[in-house]
Design a protein around this nucleic acid. Structure first.
Lengths: 130, 130
DNA sequence: GCCATAGTTCGTAACTTATGAACTATGGGA
DNA sequence: TCCCATAGTTCATAAGTTACGAACTATGGC
């Protein structure tokens, strides 16, 4: 029988800057994390199946949540059939003051810039830069 | 004959948060970048051959500099036989205020924590977490 | 021209990530 | 209690990324 290993949540002193930056260096994961950090309450994974322009397969989503969890960014708890995912931002704020806020703010700036650019020339999509 | 392609420096509006975070999610690259951002003057690549606990092969170093450069974090200019690498932190500060400062500060916090931990049990090395 | 120094490119082996298929885990009926 | 539906995980593997030695380019000095 397949093993369902327990959820891993690193303790605060085992969270690394590199791990945080790596976890948030993926556009889907920052988007998820921004949403979680913004909303006060815990969100199930399935809320995020359509966070990107194309729907995300649930195996992929599951791996993204694992990446965020194991980097120490979120806490996941099973509640019945679904997962309650919430940001660990207060703990991280204590260890690395200002880090999460600055990243989320930069992400917001970038989203706003992109929304403006898209409004100007709506046909241009999928460009990596410019 | 092999092509030596010109150095690529993205313009400020083409710099992405994800790109910055990815570039700085590598321990060698944050260390290099922290050094460059801290020192006022431009540094050649060869200054960093021994920044890590084990010496970094120069082909690897070259790729790390390329990653930093193409993420928009540094500017590299050839001066004679060597490269002058300097941080683009002022430009980035304009686009993403507080981001670089928070990351460098977190990196400093983490280095300090690790130095203390190493002093307590000096034999334990190479552990990823704890 | 030739050598030394600094850095880049290329090939490839090692690692990482994305995803479909098959699975586990839980709760709600019948 | 068994069966089904829903939510998420694991596994296999294909696709993509990274590290590094060897061979190269580029520059300056003699």
């Amino acid at each position: 029988m397949k093993i369902m290993r327990p959820l891993i949540h690193p303790s605060i002193e085992d969270i690394s800057v590199e791990g945080i930056l790596h976890a948030l260096s993926d556009p889907v994961r920052v988007a998820i994390y921004a949403e979680l950090a913004g909303s006060g309450c815990a969100n199930p994974c399935s809320n995020f199946l359509r966070i990107s322009d194309r729907p995300i397969p649930k195996s992929t989503l599951s791996q993204h949540f694992r990446a965020l969890r194991e980097a120490g960014l979120i806490r996941s708890e099973r509640h019945g059939v679904e997962m309650h995912n919430s940001s660990r931002c207060k703990e991280i704020e204590q260890r690395f003051p200002g880090l999460i806020g600055a990243i989320l703010n930069a992400h917001k700036v970038q989203s706003a810039d992109r929304a403006r650019a898209t409004k100007r020339k709506p046909a241009a999509r999928k460009t990596k830069a410019g």
